[in-house]
């Protein structure tokens, strides 16, 4: 699909990854290091950028779905590369093509909510909570608010 390649190129251009000097600062500040036991270079922002630069099929990579889309890497980058925009753009590209199994959907509204590994991390941290709290947290914030409105107002 030509349109898809074009979109990927545009995303890469917008996030400015061709300016990357591979200093690795984004990886140094990345909160994923704390979150995942199996954190690896392939999962790190630097790894993702490298993959995108060398023209590998980064959109199909499973490692794309570990990112929390925070802003730490972008803030730390001396070259102004936005790894978040890259990941976000690529994810949107995949989501447009259909729901991938790495993305959870909100049981309330059906929209994409959190990536599976991210949600696993959050629920792992909250493992002592009662099950109905965990089920509640599977809803997206907008649905939680709606639910609250129905129940409390």
């Amino acid at each position: 699909m030509a349109g898809r390649d074009e979109r990927i190129r545009r995303i890469e251009k917008e996030s400015g990854i061709d300016r990357c000097v591979e200093c690795g600062r984004c990886t140094a500040v990345c909160p994923m290091v704390e979150m995942y036991v199996n954190f690896s270079i392939a999962m790190s922002p630097r790894g993702i950028i490298k993959k995108a630069l060398t023209g590998e099929a980064v959109a199909a990579d499973r490692n794309l779905w570990y990112c929390t889309e925070c802003n730490a890497g972008t803030d730390a980058c001396p070259q102004g590369v936005s790894c978040r925009d890259l990941v976000r753009g690529l994810r949107r590209l995949v989501l447009d093509a259909g729901k991938p199994e790495e993305m959870n959907v909100c049981p309330g509204c059906g929209g994409p909510f959190l990536a599976v590994p991210v949600e696993d991390f959050v629920l792992g941290r909250l493992k002592d909570e009662p099950p109905n709290v965990k089920n509640w947290l599977k809803l997206c914030p907008a649905c939680r608010r709606e639910g609250y409105l129905r129940r409390n107002a």
Partner: peptide
């Protein structure tokens, strides 16, 4: 804070933690 937004995912009250304009 790295603005990762996991707090918004974990907040059962769905408090608006993320700034709607600047994503902070």
């Amino acid at each position: 804070c790295t603005s990762c937004g996991l707090c918004t995912a974990a907040c059962p009250e769905a408090a608006p933690l993320r700034d709607g304009r600047t994503a902070e």
